[in-house]
Design a binder for these strands. Structure first.
Length: 598
RNA sequence: GCCCUGGUAGUGUAGCGGCCUAUCAUGAAGCCCUGUCGAGGCUUCGACUCGGAUUCAAAUUCCGGCCAGGGCGCCA
């Protein structure tokens, strides 16, 4: 008999029906006579019961009993039975199907499972196996409701996004996976060409050039759920292959793109959560983000702003500050308000923050407490009453507050102070998991200068439209990042649509005319054939899902992720290939039997 | 390339120089049990990541490797 219902849909309305359920044996409880089995699938769990005392005429109890001997955990089974009310008082209110049960009249094992390497049922306060084990047996792990939820969530998100974009004139277009390797950027994943020995394709780091050429091609509005590849070391929020919701629009400005994303997310929000997303999102200039939050992706779910104190304490005869300032460094402060439990952070905890500060690369951490209208600490003696008053005003100090001061070279100290702020926010429980705050990071620089080599690099990428003369000092880029709860979820920009401007930016980035022609000639040429003003954005879907689902890593939102070393625990890739295949591709490797030749 | 954390039965853990023939839970196997739902009871099974060193004695200390994760660099 074929399945008539899933394991998540039977209810009072089905009483008396003969049904066939097929699924996995999650838990079973054999009482010697009566026996219960929780039969589960993606849709839910239904209790089926073997009730030998109450079987209808003609049912072979022995056969059922025999089949059920094979109902080991996670075995796939098929049962036929009658939907009936549960004995009063034994309903399970936690389970949507908990008002009814299926009395088995026939049972069959479809495929017996070996003892599973992990608990699949999620009623219990689960002790999950290590990620290692979970990934090796991902097909078992995927049965857990948490994984089912994550994948359903992701699917629904993308499906709503697609719905919105299609309603708004966007055209979904696929772009090639086999393309050419472009300089700069991340390391490419590379694919050898059999027909052109010695030549290689590169898998796309993003469809950037193709989507721009789609605009030149008059497609007007494009989107794609695009798989992208970057051969760089993994982190909890990135892995070799990832998914972007990629968009591009013609005849728009930055605000149009931002409005489109806000509209898109509002639509998705409504569909996912049934609530209105607050728009427009906050726009925060790049400089303000760095100044107040010490990062270009601020988490604005809580305060604890950083305060620059360099000028305030400039005259204080405190050796550490003097040295730092004389070397052009900065002093940053955080006020942990007494109302945020600053007054409950004890000396031991302060010491731990000092240790943490050192781990972040700071020389140390200066701290003070506000009491009786002034500041207390072992170093206040170096500060005149005037400086203390200025400090208290700059940091908005009240009794009970705890101040942390950090000093050092600017970039490093700002970043470390930002990390410290996040650490405090986390320790004090200031950011609530279900609170989400979007913001647009705007007014970004066009270029960043490598502090060591002095070379200019693109802050976003070389296709961003400069806001002025690209040679101008500190010229801005017409670009913006979408930030959610301290995560960069996307970055967008207006693009250069003038061929000469594009060449000029390449030159500033240190490319010769020959290099430009060689690497980007096709692209610059395209801009010369009627490229409309255009711009777009790409949203990092894996990260987006991880943040919304409250997951620590993007791997929780990907069915088959790579591990930290970019290997696939399921199929064992990457793997060597036979010599004859290498020969066909005319490839020789420098690795022989694990010996690497440099 | 570098730094940090961890590696004990199938799974999750305790132990952190001799009380270790290694704890507990879960699981698996078997038995008992007619209303459970993480059922319950009884019995049994099953483990110190690898190599070296220190020591009378190492799961425990040290060194190195391997494996996993987090981070720095890297990620236009």
């Amino acid at each position: 008999m074929k399945r008539t219902h899933t394991c998540g849909e039977l209810g009072k309305g089905d009483l008396g029906k003969e049904v066939c359920l097929q699924g996995w044996v999650r838990f079973s409880r054999d009482h010697g006579g009566v026996a219960f089995v929780d039969l589960a699938d993606r849709y839910g769990t239904t209790q089926v019961v073997f009730d030998p005392e109450n079987l209808p005429e003609g049912v072979d109890a022995k056969a059922i009993d025999g089949a059920m001997k094979g109902f080991s955990r996670e075995s796939v089974v098929s049962v036929v039975g009658i939907v009936r009310d549960r004995v009063p008082g034994t309903e399970d209110p936690r389970n949507p199907t908990g008002e009814v049960e299926v009395m088995i009249t026939s049972a069959e094992v479809l495929n017996r499972s070996a003892a599973p390497p992990m608990e699949v049922g999620d009623q219990k306060e689960g002790v999950l196996p290590s990620e290692d084990v979970r990934l090796r047996y991902r097909y078992v792990d995927l049965r857990r409701s948490e994984m089912v939820h994550a994948l359903e969530f992701r699917c629904k998100f993308l499906s709503l996004a697609r719905e919105y974009l299609l309603k708004n004139k966007f055209l979904e277009i696929e772009t090639p996976m086999l393309g050419r390797s472009t300089p700069e950027g991340a390391r490419d994943y590379v694919v050898p060409s059999r027909l052109h020995p010695g030549k290689f394709y590169a898998l796309p780091q993003s469809p950037q050039l193709f989507k721009q050429m789609l605009m030149v091609g008059g497609m007007d509005r494009y989107f794609q759920v695009a798989r992208c590849f970057r051969d760089e070391d993994s982190r909890s929020d990135r892995q070799p292959e990832f998914t972007q919701l990629d968009m591009e629009m013609s005849f728009v400005d930055s605000k149009d793109i931002q409005d489109t994303v806000e509209g898109l997310l509002s639509y998705v929000w409504k569909g996912m959560y049934g609530t209105e997303l607050e728009t427009p999102f906050l726009r925060m200039p790049f400089e303000e983000a760095l100044e107040k939050y010490g990062t270009d992706k601020p988490d604005i779910r809580f305060g604890l702003p950083l305060v620059t104190l360099t000028d305030v304490v400039r005259e204080a005869p405190y050796g550490i500050f003097q040295t730092v300032i004389s070397r052009g460094g900065v002093i940053k402060g955080i006020n942990v308000k007494g109302s945020l439990a600053g007054d409950r952070i004890g000396r031991n905890e302060v010491d731990r923050y000092i240790e943490h500060a050192k781990k972040l690369g700071l020389g140390g951490l200066t701290w003070m407490r506000a009491k009786d209208g002034t500041l207390e600490s072992n170093i206040v003696k170096y500060f005149t009453p005037g400086i203390i008053a200025d400090l208290m005003e700059a940091m908005d100090v009240e009794d009970g507050d705890l101040l942390f001061l950090m000093a050092g070279p600017e970039a490093q100290t700002v970043a470390a102070a930002g990390q410290m702020r996040l650490k405090l926010g986390q320790d004090l429980g200031l950011a609530k998991a279900d609170d989400h705050r979007f913001l647009w990071l705007v007014d970004c620089p066009m270029f960043e200068v490598d502090p060591v080599t002095g070379a200019k690099g693109a802050y976003h990428h070389p296709f961003v439209l400069p806001t002025g003369d690209p040679h101008g000092d500190g010229v801005g880029g017409e670009c913006f990042d979408l930030v959610l709860d301290g995560n960069e979820l996307g970055s967008g920009s207006m693009r250069i649509h003038n061929a000469e401007t594009q060449r000029e930016v390449f030159r500033i980035l240190g490319m010769s005319e020959e290099e430009i022609d060689e690497k980007f000639g096709f692209f610059v040429e395209a801009l010369g054939y009627g490229a409309p003003p255009h711009g777009g954005i790409a949203l990092g879907i894996d990260r987006f899902m991880a943040v919304l689902l409250g997951k620590e890593t993007i791997r929780e939102t990907i069915a088959f992720p790579k591990n930290k070393r970019a290997q696939s625990p399921f199929d064992g890739s990457p793997e060597t290939i036979p010599d004859d295949k290498l020969e066909e591709l005319q490839i020789m490797t420098l690795v022989i039997d694990d010996l690497e030749f440099e």
